[in-house]
Design a protein around this nucleic acid. Structure first.
Lengths: 343, 343
DNA sequence: GATTAGCACTCTACATCAGTGAGTGCTATT
DNA sequence: AATAGCACTCACTGATGTAGAGTGCTAATC
């Protein structure tokens, strides 16, 4: 950020941003002068505001309205102005309770986490489950369902389960299935799911296997089993954004809901947030979410016991309560990481 | 329905309902007279409309607006007026393609089905998966995850999988787990999940078991495993209802979205629709969904190969294209039943 | 007796038009 | 540098008028 500001300009910018976050109305010079501890006249404030506008930090919707912060202003605000609130004991209790109450399964915990994020922030909570493919293989099992159908069940050390119905050309007897799973369990011991997949593909080339029809069949089937679908993503509190005044008109809302209907697209975008550690903040046009929808995204990674990583965070309007949401996201990520490592 | 109407009244009512469905605007006497094949003057139509209003079939939002059908009118319409459209070849192809394209797993099929319902009807598509508890037990399996954690995997003949992480007091060796699952697989052979649960509870009382610590442990654990959570429900196309003019104002929309956030409540209400065969139609105030929200519900049951039943259907405004949606729901239910019985 | 033409009436939607007030930018003053 | 003053802009509000859609009633017509 190449923004250089005098102390006073910064204070005024901060005042404007916070006022706007609180009220969602353009804020005028006199409002700033009044609210502001520093005794300055509206006229002076106006001069400063004119500067800020020139620097691209403020805009006014029309001549006689107050000023509204731009994305750039929010950026500056979160980077250097925002005074982060502490997470209150109340809130901590709420998060912990939520994350704990559900059954011990990972998906349940994550779902509750997204609920908690949503209800504490009053925006949308999202959680992207750790990618199954980077989980460590624990167990594979085949169960005969129909005469030509086999259910493959794949378990990771995180206790995640993926199952897949596979059509087999022949009817495979139970005994063979058992032998196959023994062979494969041996083969994939200690690997991640994606490594396991590579191992399988490699093994399929080996001569020894090519002459053993059962083994090659086992590999063919398990290859399908380990090719699992996309990650899971939990979104909660979509209705909450209807409370935000900026989305009360139907058009903008539709945009957002559309964006969330294709979770696939969503995921691809969220994956970008996975690369850095700590709390990540994307504001407005920086956001990958449906461009120019006036949406901000605050995320943080969390880790499981096995160092696989997931993502959690909050989506809300750019006019978001950063000072409270950022600590909440941060705290939640740490908490979830801790909870999961205990498992 | 205790509504007796002359042929002409019925025709006029039908015209009004269909006009209103098409335009979402109150329909006036002259519009009916024009559209209507029968050559009648607006004045005559007005007389009839006055009658219909007195009978509670129409209302006018204000003196000089046209008439709007009441829920009662829609009821009468679907019961005795509506001329059902055939499902076009195009549509059939679309549904089939959608249901087939996904992997062979039941959840995937149902998800795609709800998608298909949504995109063909242009309203919200819902599918309630067959209750797992009435599925027939196929297989149970325990996998050691941590030192005091066991993952129980429960498979039904439909290929549905439920898994549950269970904390065990002691550390159970793999061998014991194997023995336990053998014992339980024997025990629950051929039963439905809910029957299996009862069997387990009964077995826990038997003397023979009480002295065998391994068996009693097996029962304790499996009892947790078969106590599975609620049914699954797939809702697709929520954003579509934003296209409906009656929901373009934020307030009503919020109501609906709120209603759908608690799937639990939703499910309880949908379960009522499970009792009867064939296409069920609930209009406006008849609907269990968030009262007085102007929502209609069209559902039909479908069955799997094992005679477990699920529910699918469409949710939209009372002003819904009944003539095309009803056949679509009907056809889809039959198709899904057929598809699932092939599995 | 049912149907219809005619007409007065009602009410909304839309446009127009001040008046108001919030807020600005500029300039002159402190 | 800070501020007071002032003219100016522009959205918002409420009043007013008009057009149009639609109704209900009555009297004429088939």
């Amino acid at each position: 950020m190449d923004v250089e500001l005098s102390a006073r300009s910064r204070q005024i910018l901060e005042a404007i941003v916070e006022d706007y976050i609180a009220t969602a109305e353009p804020v005028g010079s006199s409002a700033v002068a009044r609210r502001h501890a520093l005794t300055l006249s509206p006229a002076t404030v106006r001069n400063v505001m004119a500067n800020l506008e020139e620097m691209g930090l403020l805009t006014s919707p029309h001549t006689s309205a107050g000023r509204v912060p731009t994305d750039k202003a929010y950026r500056f605000y979160v980077d250097s102005l925002v005074g982060l609130r502490q997470v209150t004991r109340e809130e901590k209790r709420h998060i912990i309770q939520r994350c704990r109450q559900s059954g011990a399964g990972l998906p349940e915990i994550l779902k509750e986490t997204s609920r908690a994020l949503s209800s504490l922030s009053n925006y949308m909570g999202i959680v992207v489950a750790p990618s199954f493919t980077s989980d460590i293989f624990r167990h594979i099992e085949f169960i005969r369902i129909g005469s030509h159908k086999v259910l493959a069940i794949l378990v990771s050390t995180n206790g995640l389960v993926q199952n897949r119905l596979i059509e087999t050309g022949d009817d495979i007897p139970e005994n063979d299935l058992l032998a196959m799973s023994n062979y494969l369990n041996e083969l994939m011991q200690g690997l991640t799911i994606s490594q396991a997949r590579e191992r399988i593909l490699a093994e399929m080339q080996s001569e020894k296997v090519q002459y053993d029809s059962m083994m090659s069949q086992a590999l063919r089937i398990s290859e399908q089993a380990v090719t699992v679908g996309g990650d899971e993503i939990f979104v909660e509190g979509q209705a909450r954004i209807l409370d935000q005044p900026e989305f009360s008109d139907a058009g903008r809302m539709k945009e957002i809901f559309r964006a969330f209907e294709q979770k696939g697209q969503m995921l691809r975008l969220l994956n970008r947030c996975m690369n850095a550690d700590g709390v990540q903040i994307y504001i407005g046009s920086e956001t990958p979410v449906s461009q120019s929808a006036g949406v901000s995204l605050i995320t943080s990674r969390f880790t499981t016991g096995n160092n696989t990583i997931g993502l959690l965070g909050v989506i809300g309007p750019t006019r978001m309560g950063y000072s409270s949401v950022i600590p909440i996201v941060d705290y939640t990520a740490r908490l979830v990481s801790r909870l999961l490592s205990e498992i």
